[in-house]
Computed example of a mutant assay.
Amino acid sequence: MAETALTPRPTRIWDLPTRLFHWTLAAAIVVCFVSGKIGGNAMEWHFKAGYVAFGLVAFRLVWGLVGGRWSRFVNFIYAPGTILRYLKGRTRPDELIEVGHNPLGSFSVFALLGIVSIQVATGLVADDEIANTGPLWRFVESETASAATSWHKGPGQWIIIALVSLHIASIVFHRLRGHNLVLPMLTGDKPLPAGTPASADGWSQRLLALVLGAAAWALVSWVVSLGALS
C-alpha cells in the first residue's frame, strides 16, 4: 500500500536533552519527597536532589528558548481561543496541539516549573530550627526563613504531589484512549503524518545542551558556595 501525506511516520518530537530533563526531574522529585519524609541522615540526599532540581529548572528555562522545536515554550503557549476549542473538542486542523504538549500538558509543564522553582527557592533559605538549614538561610530574616520553611514542608510539597498525580492521571487517560504519551518521552519519536515539523536533535544541539547544563550546574554550585563562605 503506497504511503500518503497522512500516513504516520516516526517523527522526532522530544530531543534527548528534554527527555533527560524530564526523567531526571521526576527522579529528583521522588528522592526529595521520600528523603524528606524519612528525615535524619536521609536529608543529605534531600539536599542533593534539591540541588539537582535547581540545576534542571535553570537548564529548562533556557532550553525552552533554544531547544528543539517542540521543547520551546513559544510552541506550547496557547491563546485562550485555542484552549477553549481544545476543551470543547473543536480543534482546527491547522492547530498542531497533538504534536508536542497539548494545552493541558502545557499547563502542567509551566505549573511544575513554577512550583518547583518556588520549592527550590524556599529550600535554599529554609531553617527547620533542628538540624537542617538551606545554604542561603543566613541572608534572610528569621521570619522569612520560618515562612519559607513552612511553605517548603507544607503547601509546596503537596502542590507538587498534586500536579504530578494529575500528570500521571492524564497519561493513564490518554493511554485508555489509545495514545501512548510515555513511549515518545523515552524514544523521542511519535508516529505523525509526513511533513510534520520535527525537533532538531543532532550532536550540535546536544553539545549546546551539555554547555548549558554545565552552566546551570555552575550556577547551583556558586549559590551553594555562598552559604559556605558566609
Rank of each mutant, 00 (worst) to 15 (best):
R85V: 00
G114C: 10
K190C: 12
A111T: 02
A215D: 09
G156W: 08
P184E: 10
L207G: 06
E3M: 11
H22T: 08
V52L: 15
K153V: 14
H46D: 01
R72M: 08
A148L: 06
V109C: 01
S199K: 04
E95N: 03
I77R: 07
G154L: 08
R72G: 01
P103H: 03
S117E: 02
W23L: 06
R69V: 06
P80T: 05
K48T: 13
H179G: 01
G64E: 08
A42C: 07
D201G: 11
G67W: 05
I161W: 08
F139S: 14
S150R: 14
P93G: 08
P193M: 11
N102P: 08
P103W: 07
P191Y: 09
I29W: 08
S71I: 05
T7D: 02
P17K: 11
R175Y: 13
S142C: 04
V116K: 04
L65W: 13
D15L: 13
A58S: 10
L124N: 09
V140H: 04
K153N: 14
V109D: 06
D127G: 08
A27L: 15
S170L: 15
W222H: 10
T149Y: 14
D128W: 09
F139Y: 15
R138I: 07
E95R: 00
T144L: 07
N132V: 14
F76V: 06
T11Y: 00
W14D: 12
R60K: 12
A147I: 05
V140S: 01
P135M: 00
G36R: 12
E141K: 14
R138H: 15
V30A: 15
V120L: 07
L112H: 09
I118V: 15
V34R: 02
I77M: 12
G156F: 04
F47P: 05
W217L: 15
V34H: 03
G213Y: 01
